[in-house]
């Protein structure tokens, strides 16, 4: 039996310990905010925060996160009003929205590590997250807004 800490709650898993965290979250735990986009750490749609770092859930197995704190979009902020989430809404970032949870989690992790990133640092840190709709200009500006308030 594997015990996991997800969004501050304990979750048990007695199936395949190699199951990826992505499919555990989505299909077994019902936390569908985290998305599948590539399954190979190429797109960032599945990004969650483990302890304080952005992690691709698709290539992380459930057994990898035993004893760690997993935060998904559902647990990022109690009312959905994290500075990144607010900035995203203020600048109307999303188009289809499918990549945006991963983008927001990546941005939130970036701001833990570097509260005042430059535009170049934002572009570098967000480069693992694909948006096929092409919202990059707004993503960059929204991360900047979340970090500076302007």
């Amino acid at each position: 039996m594997i015990k996991l800490q997800i969004n501050g709650q304990e979750r048990n898993w007695d199936g395949d310990p190699d199951l990826s965290l992505l499919w555990f979250l989505r299909d077994e735990a019902g936390l569908t905010g985290t998305k599948y986009g590539c399954g190979q750490a190429l797109c960032g749609a599945c990004t969650v925060i483990v302890d304080k770092q952005a992690v691709r859930a698709c290539i992380t197995s459930v057994s990898d996160v035993v004893g760690r704190q997993v935060t998904t979009i559902e647990g990022l902020h109690p009312t959905g009003d994290h500075a990144v989430q607010k900035a995203w809404r203020q600048l109307n970032v999303p188009q289809c929205g499918y990549c945006q949870v991963g983008q927001i989690m990546q941005a939130a992790a970036l701001l833990i590590e570097n509260p005042k990133p430059t535009h170049d640092q934002i572009r570098e840190a967000m480069a693992g997250n694909i948006c096929r709709c092409g919202c990059y200009q707004r993503i960059e500006n929204a991360v900047h807004l979340a970090s500076t308030g302007v």
């Binding site: 989505r26 569908t32 905010g33 985290t34 998305k35 599948y36 998904t72 979009i73 559902e74 959905g80 989430q85 995203w88 809404r89 109307n92 999303p94 929205g97 499918y98 945006q100 949870v101 927001i104």
Partner: peptide, 14 residues
């Protein structure tokens, strides 16, 4: 759908 998208509750096919 903006708020739902940013909080992860927007419902896609999957």
């Amino acid at each position: 759908d903006l708020r739902d998208i940013t909080v992860g509750t927007a419902r896609y096919g999957a």
